[in-house]
């Protein structure tokens, strides 16, 4: 029995003052959040379908099950929830693991998918749920969870189960939406990942959204150039690379892609001139082979066109 007590006190040492919300914070609940009761082991698909539906994506629970459920693991991986969000045309964004960050998203009308460990570290029971409300006065968190449409958990218990899930929480953003609190690096990476997933139109809208917040950012202009390039819109791509280089002529990767965009428009001499500039400016050994490879590609394109 003393062992058990020790165990209990160990589990109870939560920095609650930092984690809990001030009782004066307003109550928030997204009552209209839909509910998809889960099938056995399928809390991941159910939670994701809830937030995707709220963001206006047209998805169905069976289709999401096919995208994220791993039969032999009786569950879903976090990375697959992120991937399925992208292939549904939405931007998965990991928010800070604090109750106030969750509150801010709820106040902006977005429910939050969280990972909980409902058991203990040694005997885990990993569970995804959707936070749809927080009542700071009553000390309650309101969830769409499993087969409970409106599961009410005390904030203390919620924080314990969430802590064991490493405070993991994501929101699903439309490409034209910003998170309530935006971390530039994390947000840019999220958009670049959407681009890699081949969601070019959505990524273009997201980069335009970012451009409004960070006008003239090299990363954003580069991203816009790249999505245009990948969509075969080479003149538009060229324009974004030029805008970037007019503000900052150092990113040689942008000059590399500018050269390729020019070559795609049959402007081979201008393309080769840009690559020459890049090769002359470059002092990064890792980039040399890339630039030389591009030069070769352009020469080959030029020869083929004659």
């Amino acid at each position: 029995m003393p062992t058990l007590l020790l165990l209990l006190s160990g589990c109870a040492s939560l920095p609650e003052a930092v984690r809990e919300l001030d009782a004066n914070t307003g109550r928030v609940e997204l009552e209209d959040a839909p509910f998809f009761p889960q099938q056995r082991y399928q809390c991941g698909p159910a939670a994701l379908t809830t937030v995707l539906t709220m963001s206006g994506a047209s998805v169905s629970l069976p289709a999401i099950v096919d995208k994220v459920y791993l039969p032999e693991k009786s569950g879903s991986l976090q990375v697959e929830l992120m991937a399925a969000t992208r292939t549904s045309g939405r931007l998965p964004y990991v928010i800070d693991g604090t109750l106030s960050a969750v509150w801010n998203e709820l106040a902006a009308g977005r429910a939050v998918v969280v990972l909980q460990n409902l058991g203990v570290a040694a005997i885990p029971r990993w569970h995804y749920a959707v936070v749809v409300g927080i009542d700071p006065q009553r000390g309650e968190v309101i969830l769409r969870s499993g087969t409970d449409k409106r599961r009410i958990t005390t904030t203390k218990t919620f924080l314990r189960t969430w802590r064991r899930g490493d405070y993991w929480a994501i929101v699903v953003l439309r490409p034209d939406e910003l998170p309530a609190h935006v971390d530039q690096g994390r947000y840019f990476e999220a958009i670049a990942a959407l681009e890699q997933a081949g969601q070019l139109d959505e990524a273009a809208v997201a980069w335009q959204t970012a451009l409004r917040v960070w006008p003239g950012s090299s990363a954003v202009l580069f991203g816009l150039g790249n999505v245009r390039f990948a969509s075969g819109l080479f003149a538009e791509a060229e324009e974004f690379y030029r805008r970037l280089l007019a503000r900052d002529d150092r990113p040689l990767v942008a000059r590399n892609n500018l050269a390729l965009a020019l070559a795609q428009q049959q402007e081979f001499d201008a393309a080769l001139a840009e690559i020459s500039i890049a090769l002359a400016q470059n002092n990064d050994a890792a980039l040399v082979s890339e630039l030389e490879h591009t030069q070769e590609t352009i020469r080959k394109m030029q020869a083929d066109s004659q």
Binding site: E189, A192, A219, F229, E290
Partner: peptide, 16 residues
């Protein structure tokens, strides 16, 4: 030969 957006964001200099 197109270099992806991640290279500018992560500031990667590795051989693409």
């Amino acid at each position: 030969g197109m270099i992806s957006t991640g290279y500018l964001i992560d500031n990667e200099t590795r051989d693409a």
